[in-house]
């Protein structure tokens, strides 16, 4: 998925988020001390297969 660059300002400084894509990991692999149960309350951050799709 290609995201449209978006810009935020802090005073006179502009910050534009420019994506290069995504890198995916199983959440419990990325965070080895967590279990699948830990992610139930954070389901909005993982896909249906339990992967975190990290923007890069």
């Amino acid at each position: 998925m290609s995201l449209s660059p978006s810009t935020t300002h802090i005073g006179d400084i502009s910050i534009t988020s420019v994506t290069d894509g995504t890198v995916s990991f199983a959440a419990t692999t990325m965070f080895p001390t967590t279990t699948e149960a830990d992610w139930v309350n954070h389901a909005q951050f993982v896909d249906n297969e339990g992967n975190l799709n990290l923007d890069v």
Binding site: V18, T19, D20, G21, V23, V56
Partner: peptide, 19 residues
């Protein structure tokens, strides 16, 4: 960015185009 890589769990390659 991650660079012009599309394999496995990496889907990059968009930075220069988005700039």
């Amino acid at each position: 960015g991650v660079g012009d890589i599309q394999r496995g769990n990496i889907n990059g390659g968009q930075l220069l185009g988005n700039l």
